[in-house]
Computed example of a mutant assay.
Amino acid sequence: MSAIALDTPVRYTPAVEEVQPDEAATIAQLNETFDVVLDTTARDYGHAVRAVHAKAHAIIEGTLTIDADLPPELAQGLFSSPGEHKVLMRISTNPGDILDDAISLPRGMAIKVFDVDGERLPGAEGRTQDFIMVNGNVFQAKSADKFLGNLKLLASTTDKAEGGKKVLSAALRGVTSALGAVGVESATLNTLGGAPNVDPLGETYYSATPFRYGDHIAKFSLVPVAPGLKERTGAIIDTAGDRDAIRHTVRDELRSIAGEWEFRVQLARDLERQPVEDATVEWDEEEAPFIRVATIRAAPQDSWDDARVGEVNEHLRFSIWTGLAAHQPLGNINRARRDTYRHSADYRARVNGCPIHEPA
């Protein structure tokens, strides 16, 4: 651990955020663009699905155990006292349409922690804390207006022929592999279909964007530590002839694997080097290390139990703005996500005639 990593973590104040005057207009355009995706997929499927991460691959039930005797800077918010909480975990890929798994895209991990008490974020219902992560440690766009441009491109490809997407994905995987050989990773290429078609159980997931962590500022990660999960790190899933190969592979694996992941926190120590407003900047782990604050464990189970899948996919939403004020999302990208997540959930509720709710 470097000397920089031993410095005192940055204290949170509202001044760490720099709200831009055009953010409301950008958010309105984001919602309009998401509506293109939502309208198209609802028409195709006869049923509204999520605007992003529409295709789930597994729904896992587990327990989050918060570490005892955490130092003061880590004993914050949800993690301020040891204890156990039920969790639901949803593994997905990021488009708003439900594609053949041969079109390889970044993996997502959404976590809902139950029975969480404390001051809530504005509009946050219930007693849950949500964490939403992807298997990449930076966001694809610096700001919401830049993300809007990417989203318009993705919206224009919604409902287009899967055959062409498969060819493009295979070509982009080749480009990504070549870049990886020289130590370069492109979040944009991954988002367009160039991500390696890896087993999601072996992946490390990141919040990618920063959050308030009580008195401090942090990013989060979820790291597989069970031997059965670590064996799957980097494993490529064969999708030939099976459009739901990821679901089937994960389901088979989790019937016998006891899952265990470490939930880790990366505290910002220098806002110049670990900025709040630019989510494309990687926070160097030598300067700001990830440290475990909790463990999630899941017994072997059926990860595609019909009742559980139906409840999570149809009745629940995951949002970074569902949770404690102590874990307020920070930065331009996160501020934009507050309204767009709710917009997508409200659309699903309206079109499907099925209320979206937080568990009691």
Rank of each mutant, 00 (worst) to 15 (best):
T93N: 15
Q129K: 11
T40R: 13
G118V: 04
D117V: 10
A102K: 11
Y45N: 15
L64C: 01
R127T: 12
A68C: 03
M133T: 14
I132W: 00
P122L: 04
A124P: 02
D101E: 05
V87E: 01
G77C: 02
G62I: 01
D69L: 00
G136D: 09
E125K: 15
V49E: 10
I132K: 01
S92I: 06
D101P: 08
F131Y: 11
P72Y: 04
D39V: 05
V49T: 14
I111D: 10
F131I: 09
P82E: 03
M109S: 03
V138H: 04
L78S: 08
R127L: 09
G46F: 05
D130L: 04
G46S: 09
L70C: 00
I60C: 05
T41G: 01
V116A: 03
E84Q: 13
D39R: 15
V138T: 15
L70D: 00
G83A: 08
A54C: 09
P71A: 11
A48Y: 08
G118C: 04
L88V: 15
G123A: 06
F131W: 12
D97N: 12
P122F: 02
A56V: 11
T63H: 00
D101M: 10
V113Q: 02
P82Y: 07
R120D: 07
G136I: 12
A54K: 11
F114S: 08
H85V: 04
E125L: 14
L74F: 13
I66T: 05
T128C: 13
Q76I: 11
K86W: 06
G96A: 14
I91G: 02
